[in-house]
């Protein structure tokens, strides 16, 4: 039976699990192999994930499962995403959707964000969590590679109200060599689709001399979808199969973003400590409207929020933000 969650369309049987190894065929139905099993329930800042234009300053409970449908050479969570999910089961937490939401509220979290591996490999569980979260008024977000079918993309949009999509590259050779997928067309299609339905931000990890030449093209594509999409350009942190690779040169990548900055008002260049390019500037008057501090990979935080009611305090320009600024220690559970 063909799986219809991602673009691999794997042929599944009861003991044949496909690329992500997270689904099986059971009685003519595609089922999760490990429902409601979670690898983590940590606390993080929205900015660290990164979400720069969704619930700024908020406290998120981050969750994940196991498995992925891509095979990125630089995966930063390979020990969860690329390991055989069966082998990881003894280390997983088992929480019902209600328990997971209760855990978030108990820890004063304002949102729940799926950020470890690819959410598409655990959509039925996440759909259940989203129902419990909606009841409790806890918004959910995720990071995804968007290599999903149109149907699964609809599900993503139903479950998550804010999504950061990793657009890793456009070129098919790059996709094959570095991501383990045939091409980026489905990702492009899904960015367009998700942008119409939910808040999206886009992240592109840059490998110098490999996909940096595509930055202008990616920027043009984002403008064609919506020029207000926040774009996180990541300096690649060489990990997994690329752990011996050279760290990309920050000045060189920053210089290659100059043209894109003229057409996209919300470009952020980070994923390294002390980045100079993490603040939000008003596109109208160039005032700093949101100030952030970057501790590199997974360590960004809000420093100052100068746009009350999501409006530039100097010129009144509306800054596109999903939700509102949430103080870190304000009561969690509903925003």
């Amino acid at each position: 039976m063909k799986c219809n969650y991602c673009e691999w369309h794997c042929e599944l049987e009861n003991e044949t699990y496909g690329v992500c190894r997270m689904y099986k065929e059971d009685g003519g139905v595609i089922k999760e192999r490990f429902p409601n099993k979670w690898c983590t329930y940590s606390i993080s800042r929205a900015e660290s994930l990164p979400f720069y234009h969704a619930y700024p300053g908020s406290r998120c409970m981050t969750i994940g499962t196991a498995g992925c449908n891509m095979d990125c050479r630089y995966c930063s969570n390979a020990f969860a995403a690329k390991e055989d999910p069966l082998k990881l089961q003894s280390t997983m937490y088992e929480f019902s959707p209600e328990e997971l939401v209760k855990m978030a509220i108990k820890r004063g979290c304002h949102t729940i964000v799926f950020n470890v591996n690819e959410p598409t490999v655990s959509l039925p569980s996440l759909l259940s969590v989203s129902r419990a979260a909606k009841k409790a008024g806890v918004p959910m977000g995720c990071l995804t590679n968007a290599y999903t079918t149109e149907e699964a993309t609809e599900l993503l949009a139903d479950i998550f109200s804010f999504i950061n999509i990793s657009l890793k590259g456009l070129d098919s050779n790059f996709c094959r060599e570095y991501l383990g997928i045939p091409g980026s067309k489905p990702v492009i299609r899904n960015i367009e689709r998700l942008a119409r339905k939910v808040h999206i931000e886009v992240t592109t990890p840059v490998i110098q001399s490999v996909n940096d030449k595509e930055l202008d093209k990616i920027a043009d594509f984002l403008v064609s979808v919506n020029k207000n999409i926040p774009w996180h350009v990541f300096r690649l942190l060489p990990e997994h199969k690329m752990k011996d690779a050279i760290y990309p040169n920050i000045e060189a990548i920053n210089a290659s973003l100059e043209k894109s900055r003229r057409i996209l008002p919300y470009i952020y260049f980070h994923n390294f400590v002390g980045s100079d390019w993490v603040n939000t500037m008003c596109p109208q008057c160039s005032s700093v409207v949101i100030e952030r501090f970057s501790l590199g990979c997974g360590g960004d935080k809000l420093s100052n929020f100068y746009c009350r009611d999501n409006t530039c305090s100097v010129c009144g320009c509306i800054i596109p933000i999903h939700g509102e600024h949430v103080a870190w220690n304000s009561k969690g559970g509903a925003v």
């Binding site: 930063s76 942190l237 990990e239 390294f272 400590v273 501790l295 590199g296 990979c297 997974g298 360590g299």
Partner: peptide, 12 residues
């Protein structure tokens, strides 16, 4: 070293 959760970010 400025390594967080084994991710090598550089030095301080």
């Amino acid at each position: 070293c400025f390594a967080r959760n084994l991710s090598n970010q550089g030095c301080l």
